[in-house]
Nucleic acid binder design. Structure first.
Lengths: 246, 246
DNA sequence: TGTACATCAGTGAACGCGCGTTCACTGATGTAC
DNA sequence: TGTACATCAGTGAACGCGCGTTCACTGATGTAC
């Protein structure tokens, strides 16, 4: 590394800028620790400042308000999850659609179990009094579902998806629902037909339902010892429900 | 009504006891309103006292601590949901298993949409620092799943359930998972075989997954206009996944 | 029926706490010439 | 290379707020005889 690389767009030129970026990273890291320990509702700028080793008002140099810190944490968590999912999916061959689907599901679950508080922030009860700014969270917040429909649409285009899973084939898609699905197909540039898309939405919510039950402790402490196997079974059933061949 | 009915076990004899019971009811009612407005983490005994028209310390005559109020609200919500589900299921003929299943799902969803904050307390992120006392919440907290497996087991015993939904039939149940399922079958006195029971668990979590996505706003504001139809479609697919005939 | 006592609901003051946010300030670090 | 000025990170005090919980107390309501 020399200092003769002035063209790098994203690089931070001055030491001050670098120090500033590092401090913001520290704030986000500490914020995540607090999230994990006390939950989003109890997230406090004063406590973050204490852990940063700085007086409480100093944090306001970096973060406009408690709200903004929550947004930073939200975006950070969405991106960490999105990176984990992309890496897991990308590790499977492009035409192994079932493998990619299972990799996606396992990646979401593993991340959720490792970061339960961040998962709760993204997929649990809304934080009272906090409304995420759509323009900053929509992109990162849709990475998982985008990856999921990419797999299903890819499988469909490759002829590797049943016209509709055997369960879904004979469940009517009403006209109103079909209109929603047509919009989605248009916006995302998809080729999958209605029954597949409708089942795909259910597969999506079901995946998160199974993970939320586990992360939020809904199963109770004793009901399931074999949680990995339970989830693997669920993934297998969901893959078939989506129409993926095995 | 005369005062000549001294034998009624549950009746509250003295006026003081009745007044006390009414005040506790008021506290729970006000607590629920605060839950709905500000979320569980922000639930405050002082605020409840204010709305009750009483000085803050007076609430401690009725409720031991903030923790205990949360427990009261939890049990109250579980029972309200359980009552709604039982009523909806009971309104269908005993042998209309698919109808009962769909009634159960619709009842949970309707209650959740009407009481989003209570739903969040029961099925959303855990409240930081609060651990529900198992001996008071386990009974009410399992009413929905008990009702659900009663439907599936009843359908199975009546010969109205496929050996396993077409999707689930060829997904392996590993030995470890089978052990968990055997325990559950024993504890609940069920007859359904492993593949059906395993799919039933997925149907259970999927139902709540779909409802949570809707209640917690995960679909985004615009993606689905036809939410009733979307949920009806999901219910239909889930019924087939459970093995119910139509 | 009347009196003496016990029970209990509710009061008001106080404890110690943590929070978000603002503001005028001190120094250190960077920049322009 | 050296000086004058601008920028910025961090300080410390303060604002007003709400919280959970305890405690000694006042009266009103109930009970025993």
């Amino acid at each position: 590394m020399t200092d003769a690389a002035p063209a790098a767009e994203a690089a931070l030129r001055t030491p001050r800028e670098r120090a500033r970026a590092r401090t913001i990273e520290d704030i986000v890291r500490i914020g995540r620790e607090h999230l994990a320990l006390h939950g989003a509702a109890a997230l406090s700028l004063r406590a973050v400042a204490r852990d940063l080793g700085v007086v409480s008002s100093a944090v306001y140099r970096y973060v406009e308000s408690r709200e903004e810190l929550l947004t930073l944490l939200l975006v950070d968590a969405y991106n960490e999850l999105g990176d984990a999912v992309d890496a897991a999916v990308g590790a499977r061959p492009e035409n192994d659609f079932t493998g990619r689907f299972e990799a996606l599901g396992a990646a979401v679950r593993n991340w959720a179990l490792a970061q339960p508080a961040s998962y709760a922030l993204l997929f649990g009860s809304p934080v009272p009094g906090y409304q995420a700014p759509a323009e900053r969270t929509t992109g990162p917040g849709t990475r998982v579902v985008v990856a999921l429909v990419a797999i299903l649409d890819g499988a469909w285009r490759a002829g590797n998806l049943s016209e509709a899973g055997p369960h879904a084939a004979d469940v009517d898609v009403t006209a109103l629902l079909a209109a929603d699905l047509a919009n989605i197909r248009g916006e995302m540039g998809l080729a999958v037909p209605d029954p597949v898309l409708a089942s795909g939405v259910l597969v999506w919510t079901s995946l998160f339902g199974a993970i939320s039950f586990e992360v939020f402790g809904q199963y109770g402490p004793d009901a399931f010892v074999a949680r990995d196997e339970l989830f693997a079974h669920h993934l297998g059933v969901l893959a078939r429900l989506a129409g993926l061949r095995t």
